[in-house]
Design a protein around this nucleic acid. Structure first.
Lengths: 146, 146
DNA sequence: ATAATCTCTATCATATTGATAGAGTATACA
DNA sequence: TGTATACTCTATCAATATGATAGAGATTAT
């Protein structure tokens, strides 16, 4: 797994929408400003997240984006898998991979499998409800420390 | 961490040289044939591994490559770090990274750090002496199972 | 009507990836 | 001393991914 800007932006966007859950829609413009993401890039990220069923949109004058599911129902791993396309540390570990002469005798395979399992156990154990709590706590700490 | 062909080839090359440790040099040609790697690509991989201090070379008529250290002294993590350039799941976790507005308040940071630690604990716990044993065992199993 | 918003597709510059090409240098050995 | 057999070095290439920009739509509250 390697997270690119694409994935980073997607995760931060979903966290922002989770922070605004049950609070109406958020516009691309506001998201872009708060998260420091180029507006036109964020457009594509959001359209993709919509295709993935993570967000919904409202068009028109008071339109914007909102989360399609409860934050507790979205895991970090779900988003990474959908946006980046994979989570595995090497292609030969991916499901349905063909193209290695002797996949099952490979001495490295168990190593990659252990990395893969450890990675997934982390990213699939964190949902956006927890992240919202953590983000709010961090914000409080920050304000108090000034 | 995401292993590309570059890293995969490097690891397999070092394993092959480890299997031939104390057994003279191995030519690029033999390595390329056994490992199914394009010769001219393998050249570059080997020159790089030499720069990294993993292998040594002998030029001339009976030249070839050999491991620069004992297989037990080379960890999978060492090779990946050198060849791929990083091991972290995202750039902001890399040492000396600047460029995030509030790195220490980021709700995702602890997630990436956990992935990072888990990954490193795997790849830094496997050395090429163990891999040689495993590879020899796998080869035996294969022969017996025919 | 119109302003504000999302939608869609095309394009772009740059870097990375995986691979190929060819001329050079060193060494064993007949 | 010639030559075959190796490693050495640098350039180049096609294809793809990455991060970003552009502009013309479609929708909706007021």
């Amino acid at each position: 797994m390697r997270i690119t800007y694409k994935g980073d932006y997607a995760l931060k966007t979903i966290l922002d929408l989770a922070l605004n859950y049950n609070n109406g829609v958020v516009t691309i413009h506001d998201l872009a400003k708060r998260l420091d993401i180029p507006v036109k890039f964020l457009e594509q990220v959001l359209l993709n997240l919509k295709k993935g069923g993570f967000v919904e949109s409202r068009r028109g004058k008071i339109g914007g984006y909102l989360l399609a599911k409860h934050p507790a129902k979205i895991k970090v791993g779900d988003v990474v898998r959908f946006v980046e396309g994979y989570v595995e540390p090497i292609a030969c570990i991916e499901n349905g991979y063909k193209g290695c002469r002797d996949l099952y005798r490979c001495a490295f395979r168990p190593v990659w499998q252990r990395v893969d399992e450890a990675t997934k156990s982390v990213i699939d154990s964190v949902n956006f409800e927890e992240l919202v709590e953590k983000a709010r706590a961090n914000r409080r700490n920050f304000v108090y420390s000034i």
